[in-house]
Design a protein around this nucleic acid. Structure first.
Lengths: 359, 359
DNA sequence: CTGAAAGCGCTTACAG
DNA sequence: CTGAAAGCGCTTACAG
């Protein structure tokens, strides 16, 4: 193994380990170590292929230059892209990131958080499961650098960066209403997580605003734990049971993809038989035919903001709560055409419009 | 900060730190520490909310229980799913994983590897860029637990788990030939990476076997660094310049997605005007209309194998080279129908078959 | 200008 | 049965 330590360098260069440490940290000139010694030490270090042991450094200095990232599932589109930005930005500032998936499970969440805590991360970036509030508050109290992403807790003083989820669904329903839809269903997860609560609120409020009655049957809540397969089945039977629904709003990627699969299985033509909007953009929604109208999240901005806030906490050792709420972006595509039936006077034009979605 | 150490516990419990350490590591009974003392120590530790400092532990024991993962880009479908499996499996064995993106850049690769080395990972899982051979060999020589994924080096004794890439493209071309295509283009990256070389070889050999002439103009190599946008443009002009091509094989996800976008922009109907096969499955290829025939990689198996080999190296401290080559899976979908023109006798049936792809 | 010594928080022979 | 001491590889006052 690579067991070269500053002791070895010191011996070979004929100086003390103190001097080696000073020089290796680039403080040689400042501390007026003689240039010849500096050179000697650098040469020996290179020759021996010396690698500073970060564990030892960290133990002594208290800095690990490592950030902990806890997400639901790193293979999820949103989180993998978030992770990419976080890692990219962290790297710029000399930090590495350790990631853990909570699998949306409180037990696993607590475990991985504990592990990261033991490993002394310099800061934590967490998409918390709903039961983690107490642990999060505890960390805040202990003054640990921490920022929540994607979700947060109402009565917590933890900093966070999240989306204006309410606006996302509100804008979606408004768009659908304007296009002439009035039997708008929502498919969401059966979860206490605030971002889903907000998305649901936005849906309800927008319905009210557009004088569309809220129909409890049009609300489908799917347990988080369901596999994609099972989710497809659930959505199929939901859609089959509500044939009058003319538009569906999926509150996440994880529901939209199985949702489209379910609609295809039922032979429902998106954009024609039924309008579709989904939270989170991705390649499929963009390239599908018809392409899917989405509420896109500024993932890069979320990651950058979160990291900036975290680094500020780490540097200034101050934990003033920062709340960063970013705006969603409704991208209108082919899955939400003007509803043909409402404009019989210009039927041909409407058909034309809709047909575009089928090609 | 959480500054509770075993010293604090020792003081409060009225014992030595040695005893605390023994008890906290679960060796109290074995070492015949009196049960009352054990209980006392455990109670105090819980009361003080003690967290063992893994940095200190690692410095002393030489184990960090952390694995380093270096991928091209964590947001890439293949790598994010690989990361998920790796993390899941690692977690089962008490390891956490630190990930870094190499962005397919040698400089960044070297940097992140250096950082991970300093941080004393217990093992390394690396998708190496082509220039990393020397560093990798060095690690092997130093007996560092290491396994390469997705790619490897011919003359290196580093263990690896990879795909039979040759078979992937060979099977694809064979499938296309059987469906009646004979002007088969390949779009790949301009890279030395072995998996791409192998994919190219499989293409050429299959052409030869099926007596299809190799046409240099049908080969498009796109620089790795190109953005998705730029890749779309490149593919558009390539396709436009070769109107006689009747099938395209994309050697990766990162090319297939922009490829489909380019074809759409050119108004080329996949499955009708041109057949398409792509390496790596994903949601879009599965759900697209027409759905895309793919060569799918057993990502979970790749991750599990790699982790198993790595943990074996870590546990046994033996570095016998293990080469694990998994088989790709050709999933035939709608983008590669029987080519209509070759079976004029049963034209109606062929049309039928092809049409399926359009609906 | 440079080095001896203490200490970060642990574990582990070793002694009694 | 339990504890004093050394040491993992560093950094950092402090002294001279």
């Amino acid at each position: 193994m690579n067991k070269v330590s500053i002791k070895d360098i010191a011996k070979k260069a004929g100086v003390s380990i103190t001097t080696v440490s000073i020089v290796l940290n680039g403080n040689g000139t400042e501390r007026k170590i003689s240039p010849s010694k500096i050179k000697k030490i650098m040469d020996v270090a290179a020759e021996l292929n010396y690698r500073p042991n970060q564990q030892a450094k960290s133990l002594r200095t208290g800095k690990t230059y490592t950030l902990g990232l806890i997400v639901d599932d790193i293979s999820n589109f949103f989180f993998s892209h978030l992770a990419k930005t976080v890692e990219e930005e962290a790297d710029k500032f000399g930090y590495t990131v350790m990631f853990c998936s909570s699998e949306n499970d409180e037990g696993k969440s607590r475990n991985v958080l504990g592990t990261l805590l033991n490993k002394q991360m310099d800061g934590y970036l967490i998409a918390p499961t709903s039961g983690m509030q107490q642990e999060i508050n505890q960390l805040v109290q202990e003054n640990k650098p921490l920022v929540l992403v994607d979700r947060f807790f109402q009565n917590s003083s933890a900093s966070y960066v999240a989306l204006d989820n309410y606006k996302g669904t509100f804008d979606s329903v408004t768009h659908l209403a304007k296009q002439g839809y009035s039997k708008i269903a929502i498919v969401t997860n059966d979860s206490e997580q605030i971002q889903l609560q907000e998305r649901f609120e936005g849906y309800k409020t927008a319905l009210r605003k557009h004088k569309i009655p809220f129909v409890p049957e049009y609300v489908k809540k799917i347990p988080f734990k369901f596999s994609a397969q099972k989710t497809v089945r659930e959505i199929e039977s939901f859609v089959a049971a509500n044939p009058d629904v003319d538009a569906i709003l999926f509150t996440s990627n994880n529901l939209g993809i199985p949702g489209l699969e379910g609609l295809r299985n039922l032979n429902k033509k998106v954009g024609n038989d039924i309008a579709v909007i989904c939270f989170d953009d991705n390649d499929h929604f963009r390239l599908a035919s018809p392409s899917i109208t989405v509420i896109s999240q500024p993932i890069r901005a979320i990651g950058k903001n979160a990291l900036k806030i975290l680094l500020d906490q780490i540097d200034k050792k101050e934990l003033k709560q920062v709340k960063s709420v970013l705006l969603p972006n409704l991208i209108v595509r082919e899955s939400t055409p003007v509803k043909a039936s409402i404009i019989p006077a210009v039927k041909s034009k409407a058909t034309d419009n809709t047909a575009k979605g089928k090609k």
